[in-house]
Computed example of a mutant assay.
Amino acid sequence: MAAIKREIIQLLKEEILSLQLKPGTIISETTLSERFKISRTPIRDILKQLSAEGYVDIYPQKGSVVSYIDLESVEQIIYLRSTLEKEMIKELSAYIPLKGLHQLHDLLTSQEDCLKKEDAFGNFMALDDAFHKTFFTLTGRLFLWDIIQQFNAHYLRYRKLHMLKKEKLSEILKEHQLIVSHIVEGKTEEIDALIHHHIRADVNSLYFQEHFADYIKKEKN
């Protein structure tokens, strides 16, 4: 049963992150029980786990809904990633293993190839994750990456909606290329500003509020 629950949790996460299940969507225990052919008791455990990671909000006596995107949570994750990645990239600009540099260049090539395709978004987002994860891996801080992923539900959906613009993907690739260039050339003095813009540029953008207001968590008066 534990393996089945993990599979269901992963599937529901994917449906929430892909916006198949949009913010505010009611999630019925009965419907999930019928869909996955298991009793409601493990379904409750699954929903509790999803709630603990920010994917679902559970309301006593009312039921469960897909969580609205919490911009405060988004800001916290952006701050954390920006702070960590600035330091890791500076560290790599002082010394990066040749194998690691090849990994980054291979990812840049894959991103370039991805943008030439009609349906670039899904693959590009995965490559973007792989690119940034490489910094954590090469500096021996993969544990921190894994922790961030556990509390990433709001940020991932926020980022996905910003990346629906094709021109945004091209902008991200250019900044990735510049990051690698700075690492190779050891331009540590330019890294802070570049990473600050790369990770934080969209956080105060009106684009999200204008196009996806219905997905945002409303502040209580």
Rank of each mutant, 00 (worst) to 15 (best):
Y68S: 06
L173S: 04
S170G: 12
A126F: 03
Y95S: 12
E112Q: 14
L156E: 09
H102C: 04
N123I: 07
H102A: 10
I89S: 10
H176R: 15
E85Q: 14
I148C: 09
D128V: 08
Y158F: 15
L80Q: 15
L108S: 06
I69P: 03
F124E: 01
Q111C: 09
K86C: 12
I89R: 13
I77C: 08
Q149K: 15
A126H: 13
M163Q: 14
S73R: 14
H154S: 11
F124Y: 00
S93Q: 03
S110W: 02
T83M: 06
I148E: 00
L92H: 00
K160W: 03
M88V: 02
H198T: 03
I89A: 11
S181I: 00
Q150T: 15
K174H: 12
S93H: 01
L127Q: 10
Q149W: 02
L169P: 07
I147F: 07
Y79Q: 14
D129E: 12
E171T: 15
K117W: 08
L156W: 05
T134L: 02
H102N: 09
I195V: 06
S82V: 09
H154W: 02
E91T: 15
Q177A: 09
L71D: 02
E85F: 02
N152D: 15
I172E: 05
W145F: 11
V65P: 01
L71I: 11
D128A: 11
I147V: 11
G100E: 02
Y158M: 13
V184H: 05
G100S: 08
K133I: 03
M163P: 08
I191P: 12
L156I: 14
L194M: 05
K168H: 15
V65R: 05
P97E: 01
